[in-house]
Write a protein that binds this DNA or RNA. Structure first.
Lengths: 185, 185
DNA sequence: TACAATTTTCAGAAATTTCTGAAAGTTAAG
DNA sequence: CTTAACTTTCAGAAATTTCTGAAAATTGTA
């Protein structure tokens, strides 16, 4: 398990970025390594390549599985578990996007929904309630939009992302066609 | 500085979510409080309301200013600095979105660009290079898309986000207009 | 200029997160 | 059933992050 210098730099960087993306350094490194490495790796190999303990690898793999980012495989005649990144780069990106939406948006939506059920007790509460409603509406819209993007076919998503400022023209176009009313769901 | 029970819950929750959104607990709480509170607050009030030290408030405010999420104000005849959330909920959301793009995407794009300059030294390097190129292309596209969204007028953004699955029809429409050809569904 | 009000800094303390490695658990094969 | 190969767990150690509070710096006012 000798890493090419390119792979090495890639792996270390994803370790450092890890915390910004929702996991810790070693989990980030493991994910990067499994993504860039052409063939599946077992826990021993991961531990050796990243110079971390066997136990740490086990915990990291558990987390990556919870994120649905890695896939377990078996090699005939070998009892060890082998792992690879779960799918293409695009599929991985989608998965990260979806998991982050779940972790970053859902708990907040759920709490705010809860708070909005309470009857405001006084003027102060009522003011807070208003703000909470605003935040809730925005996050809900964001969640739905993220959902829509998640469900798009690869081709459509690509097209959309490549539109650039052309997106404005398209929105105008739509306005003309439908006379200004928003699409049904 | 007594918080309504609603505000209390809101603030505590944003503290807990803080780390997922890129800041720590107290910074998250401070942001939530400044967002939900109807009038500007000074450092002393923040410290008291959140039961944290004055020094911690100072550091937190510095960070929130780096994120461009709070605004400094002065009250006539009072030497203290007063702070509020920088703009409406929508403006704040945009700012968080942009800052996170900067922190989560830019450093990686920059590293990958760097790596792609290196001539692969061997077969292994070449394989890694290919993966790196794939990741780079995707993140670059994502960055551009995020940029496009950032620059949209509020109205257009709202329209886009509300499109739901209508977005597919719009993409088809665009296809027809520009003579592109893809099989209809 | 001197002073008092306020903010910032930062060394060390406290809290939290991550990591290790030995022990316990699991599983396939004989 | 037994054993050996492997994986998981988890208590405590190590590393990292966050927080405090006293001292230093800054700033407006007289």
């Amino acid at each position: 398990m000798k890493l090419s210098s390119q792979a090495q730099a890639f792996v270390l960087h994803f370790g450092e970025m890890g915390s910004r993306w929702g996991f810790n350094r070693t989990v980030g490194q493991m994910f990067a390594l499994l993504t860039i490495h052409p063939v599946p790796l077992n826990a021993e190999q991961l531990a050796q390549a990243l110079k971390i303990s066997r136990g740490n690898v086990s915990m990291g793999l558990k987390e990556l599985q919870a994120w649905r980012l890695v896939e377990l495989q078996h090699q005939p005649g070998d009892r060890k578990d082998y792992f690879t990144a779960a799918g293409s780069i695009w599929e991985l990106a989608r998965t990260v996007f979806e998991e982050r939406r779940k972790r970053e948006l859902d708990p907040t939506l759920s709490l705010l929904r809860q708070l909005l059920l309470n009857e405001p007790q006084d003027e102060q509460d009522a003011q807070a309630q208003e703000k909470i409603q605003e935040v809730y509406s925005l996050l809900e819209l964001l969640e739905e939009f993220a959902n829509t993007l998640s469900k798009l076919e690869h081709d459509d998503l690509l097209k959309l992302m490549k539109l650039g400022s052309g997106i404005i023209k398209l929105l105008e176009l739509k306005n003309k066609m439908s006379g200004g009313k928003t699409a049904p769901d």
